[in-house]
C-alpha cells in the first residue's frame, strides 16, 4: 500500500505523463490491469499493485462528438487499451465525426497548459497496429 502522506495514485500517474508515458497498474495476485490508479485492487482488495507503462495501443470502444457553442466539434471517446483496461480520452489528428468504434489508436501525451497538467490523448494508429 502506498504511503498517502508521500505519494498519491494520481500523483504517480501524472509523473509518468510528464515523462510522456501512459501508466496503469497491475494487480500481481491475479495479473489483472487496474485503471484508474488506486491504493487497492478493486474487487479483491489486494494491495499488491505494480505500476506499468502501457505500450499505448488500443481500440475505440465508444465515441461521441460534443458540440460546444462557438467551438470546433470535440471528440470524447472510451479507449480499450491492449493491456486490458479502459479509459476516457479523445482521438486527435482526425475529424471528430470520423472517429469510429473499433478504430485502432495510439497514445500521445498532451502537454496541457497552466491550468491542466499533461494528459493522454490518442491518434489513429498506422496500418497493422
Amino acid at each position: 500500500m502506498p504511503d498517502l502522506m508521500k505519494q498519491s495514485p494520481y500523483g504517480t500517474f501524472l509523473e509518468h505523463c510528464k515523462k510522456g508515458e501512459l501508466a496503469y497498474q497491475v494487480s500481481t495476485d491475479d495479473g489483472k490491469a487496474v485503471f484508474y490508479p488506486r491504493v487497492v485492487a478493486p474487487g479483491s482488495g489486494s494491495t499488491h499493485l505494480e505500476w506499468r507503462v502501457s505500450k499505448g495501443l488500443g481500440t475505440v470502444y465508444s465515441t461521441t462528438v460534443v458540440y460546444y457553442k462557438d467551438e470546433k466539434p470535440l471528440n470524447v471517446a472510451l479507449i480499450d487499451l491492449d493491456e486490458g483496461f479502459r479509459m476516457m480520452s479523445r482521438v486527435e489528428d482526425i475529424d471528430s465525426l470520423e472517429v469510429k468504434i473499433g478504430m485502432r489508436v495510439k497514445v500521445r501525451i498532451h502537454p496541457g497548459d497552466e491550468k491542466q497538467p499533461p494528459y493522454p490523448v490518442f491518434t489513429p494508429a498506422g496500418r497493422g497496429a
Partner: peptide, 12 residues
C-alpha cells in the same frame, strides 16, 4: 481521468 476531456455530462 475524465474532466480534462470535457465530456458534456451527463449527455456525452
Amino acid at each position: 481521468y475524465e474532466t480534462p476531456y470535457r465530456p458534456f455530462m451527463p449527455s456525452s
